[in-house]
Design a protein around this nucleic acid. Sequence first.
DNA 1: TATAATTACATTGCACACAATTAAATTGTG
DNA 2: CACAATTTAATTGTGTGCAATGTAATTATA
Lengths: 143, 143
Amino acid sequence: MNNNLLLEKQLCFRLYSLNKLMCRLYVPVLKELALTYPQYLVMMVLWQYKAGISVKDLGAQLDLDSGTLSPLLKRMEKQMLIKRERDSTDERVVLIKLTQKGVELQKSAEHIPAKMFVVTGLSPDKLQELNLTLDQLIDNLGD
Amino acid sequence: MNNNLLLEKQLCFRLYSLNKLMCRLYVPVLKELALTYPQYLVMMVLWQYKAGISVKDLGAQLDLDSGTLSPLLKRMEKQMLIKRERDSTDERVVLIKLTQKGVELQKSAEHIPAKMFVVTGLSPDKLQELNLTLDQLIDNLGD
DNA sequence: TATAATTACATTGCACACAATTAAATTGTG
DNA sequence: CACAATTTAATTGTGTGCAATGTAATTATA
């Protein structure tokens, strides 16, 4: 009887469970900003690229393709968080830019990282170590 | 300028990315078994509960609700991997049991954990340590 | 410079996740 | 026993992920 196929033994199941748990913990926090979890990730990129970023580059940062991003960005545009405009120098490119509302939302988000850190219950050292291990793993699994 | 909202600093983004990377690595492996990733997780539980398990208990193991499991299990039933039958002692309960095909699929899956371990590129010790840290985190975030 | 190949994005279809609601069966209580 | 509360699944609707395909714009090549 092979017992390697037990759920509890799988790293993949831990990552799957943790990702879901993490998302759920963000839900009430992000509800105040009227953002979903993936939308929050998009906003973090946009707050970093205030001049605007192409859908392609945004997808590279988040590791998402246009099949995911196109409808997601449309919903965010409907919420007036972003604008979408064609790059005049290359009409294939769609540039994503924050609206004033999108820029201002950053202020309401600045407390989130510290808040979520507390929830993890990890010491700063332990978190740092975990982040390094996960980065190594991401690199190993990397595309 | 607050830089805590950088994607690279977020534990949540690492978990989000790793979960996706992991799923993608399983796809070609699971394709041979004609299983999706969540279906594989369900199968692991069922290979452990050969006598059958209720949808509720299955959901408790996987941390999934009936909104996810009901359609997923129907698809697995259509593939003849499982049977679904009402518990005669409590008609509210639906018992999930493997078909012969479902039982036999385990043989084709037994090579997967070792195969995926190699892909992680982690030493056994490092994997063990990571698993412990993740378990602690799951516990801290836990329901 | 035609046209073939590539690039960037959108669209379609399928499979999760999950909140909210519904429906049926069972249990608890007066 | 009657009836309210609880339990278990199924259903509905929304929002991702992602493969596959379509389309328009740009670039490369004969």
